[in-house]
């Protein structure tokens, strides 16, 4: 499987890619999140979607900078990205990061950037509906999966059903934590908290959330966000449950089910 940059795709295929895969910082640099990037790339490949990435032309969307209060750095990145999109004539993008998804979808329009943005769970759901991919049952038979809504996909963008519809195809028992959907509890990473220590308190936010997710004794915690993945992994380590319970992005569950 070869991952094309836009230029490579255009020169080798002689046409524009069907969709651009916006990878994001976590998916590009973090070794854990890279696995999610790979999973999504494989899914797109198996669905025979002509996709390309921006490669080294991509930068952070600016989400953590804007939320930290550093609007200057946000705009620097956002305006630069909008120029890049203009240069490559990009209209449609998919991303596995709800933070990138939210910023590209809801915040770039005010700066003149209007694109068709989908989160990978939305795209995967429609690929299944259109029968461009199918999920093999069986791999998760008898397993229990607890699903964690990320704030940026769920509460802020109302995407609750797509990830659940995909999970329901896995032949596993799906459980919901007490706080779910628009009442879902944050993993603790948003608002640029990922990049600093938490303020003094009794507990880490990710530990609070992991404890809640563990209430249903799941084998797997399913997530839709690379930052949630890292926070949940860390929370499980804190509870010494990282051997028994694994955290996977929904895209990773699909490639496991299909043995891709």
């Amino acid at each position: 499987m070869k991952i094309y940059t836009i230029e490579e795709f255009k020169s080798s295929q002689g046409k524009d890619p069907e969709i651009v895969f916006w990878v994001g910082c976590a998916g590009s640099f973090d070794s854990r999140a890279q696995k999610i990037t790979l999973a999504l790339a494989k899914i797109l490949h198996h669905a025979k979607i002509g996709f390309a990435v921006l490669g080294n032309d991509e930068t952070c969307t600016g989400d953590p900078a804007r939320r930290s209060g550093n609007e200057f750095v946000f705009q620097l990145l956002a305006l630069q990205n909008i120029e890049t999109f203009k240069m490559h004539n990009i209209k449609k993008m998919v991303t596995a990061c709800p933070h990138c998804f939210n910023t590209l979808k809801n915040e770039y329009p005010a700066l003149g950037g209007n694109y068709d943005i989908v989160h990978h769970t939305q795209l995967i759901q429609s690929l299944i509906q259109e029968k461009r991919i199918s999920i093999e049952g069986g791999a998760f038979n008898g397993k229990k999966i607890a699903y964690h809504d990320s704030c940026y996909l769920g509460r802020m963008n109302g995407v609750y059903e797509a990830p659940r519809n995909i999970l329901n195809q896995l032949d596993a028992e799906i459980s919901e934590p007490r706080r779910n959907r628009n009442n879902g509890l944050c993993c603790g990473a948003g608002g640029a908290q990922m990049f600093k220590e938490e303020e003094p308190g009794d507990k880490k936010v990710n530990v609070e959330r992991v404890e809640e997710l563990l209430e249903s004794s799941p084998d797997i915690i399913a997530v839709n966000c690379p930052f949630c993945t890292l926070m949940m992994d860390d929370g499980l380590k804190n509870k010494e449950q990282d051997e028994n319970v694994k955290v996977y992005d929904i895209s990773e569950l699909i490639i496991q089910a299909n043995n891709w």
């Binding site: 990878v23 998916g27 080294n56 930290s68 550093n70 620097l76 640029a192 220590e197």
Partner: peptide
Amino acid sequence: GPSEWMPMFNALENNGAVWQMPGQRFDW
């Protein structure tokens, strides 16, 4: 602001990424 954010801002301004990484974005 929180001092831990400063390396992030530097990485964002200089490398366009939240982390200061030795490699390049497309290395994966």
